[in-house]
């Protein structure tokens, strides 16, 4: 097992799995901190992945593909805002509907636009290539992990401290935290919590869109029906576990990403695919259980003032 971890090609594959989860979870963190119970990250991701392929196919540029992915995610965020914030729909109901909407719409549009069933790949889809970081190559584990990845991975890494600073020091970050904790305080100060939450949802959509772009135009160069495959749900769990704090999110995303890529690896070692497919979900459950035990232990000790 250890041998495997030090296998450079394994190490190099970890970021491919970390990036979509991390980006989606950072988006989810915006919602979580703003008091929007958004469990539609799966749908946001999927729409982002699809929009990335559309943008990249028609423009020939992966960057425009990423932009399209962000717009696709923002569009989903606006749908969420319309039905949850403006019309007052229950966030769980709206999330379930959006997840179904994304699944249906991407498959429908895949056939409507590309006339493809199930999957679509074409040389015209321009993907992100690896970015080489000079001077990293000789490091044993860190070298392959942090060198030669897609630009979206580096973006995701930079996004963590930025998000942390945003929540601590930025005007909107402060208001987002207030909207999540005591929105009445915002109302009394003359700021509409609804508007603050709208911004959070839009930001969430953009980040999830980029996560989707990593799936479709950085990891591979194609779109497959339902290609988010539960990663949005894992991001939801990561957000719930960390209560939307960026640095712990980074850690959790790396844990999940490693398990994800590990399961991909051991498949090659002869374990039935069904068992390796299960691993991310079982790992998620295990992390959930461990953390809740740990938290329970802390409250039982009372935590002296």
């Amino acid at each position: 097992m250890l041998e495997l971890l030090f296998d450079p090609s394994f190490a190099a594959s970890v970021p491919r799995f970390v990036t979509p989860i991390l980006l989606a979870a950072l988006g989810g963190a915006l919602c979580e901190r703003a008091g929007v119970f958004n469990i539609a990250l799966e749908g946001f991701l999927l729409m982002g992945a699809f929009a990335a392929v559309v943008g990249s196919y028609f423009s020939g540029s992966p960057w425009l593909g990423a932009l399209a992915a962000m717009l696709g995610g923002v569009a989903m965020g606006l749908v969420f805002a319309e039905f949850n914030l403006r019309r007052g729909g229950d966030p769980i109901v709206v999330s379930i509907a959006i997840n179904i909407l994304a699944a249906g719409l991407t498959t429908y549009l895949l056939r409507a636009i590309f006339d493809a069933m199930g999957a679509f790949s074409d040389p015209a889809i321009a993907g992100f290539g690896p970015v080489s970081i000079p001077g990293l190559g000789w490091l044993p584990v860190l070298g392959p992990v942090f060198g030669g990845q897609s630009p979206l991975f580096y973006l995701a890494l930079v996004a963590v401290p930025v998000a942390s600073l945003f929540f601590a020091r930025h005007r909107l970050g402060l208001r987002i935290r207030a909207a999540g904790e005591n929105p009445a305080g915002l109302v009394a100060g003359g700021v509409s919590p609804r508007r603050v939450r709208l911004y959070a949802l839009m930001g969430c959509g953009a980040l999830c869109g980029l996560g989707g772009a990593q799936l479709s135009i950085a990891n591979v160069n194609l779109f497959v029906e339902n290609m988010s495959a539960g990663r949005g749900w894992i991001a939801v769990v990561a957000v719930l576990l960390t209560r939307g704090r960026p640095w712990p999110l980074l850690l959790i995303a790396f844990i999940f990403g490693t398990v994800d890529s590990l399961s991909f690896r051991v498949q090659g070692l002869g374990m039935p695919q069904q068992f390796t497919d299960m691993m991310p979900y079982l790992a998620t459950l295990a992390v959930l259980i461990t953390l809740s035990w740990w938290r329970r232990g802390r409250t039982a000790n009372g935590g002296a003032p």
Binding site: R87, G89, D90, V93, L101, A103, G104, T107, R111
Partner: peptide, 22 residues
Amino acid sequence: PKEIALVMQAVIILFVASRVSG
């Protein structure tokens, strides 16, 4: 494409459920 059914269901739920819970 028959996936229009999924879209239809989602849109109906968005409009109806948000009205009910609203």
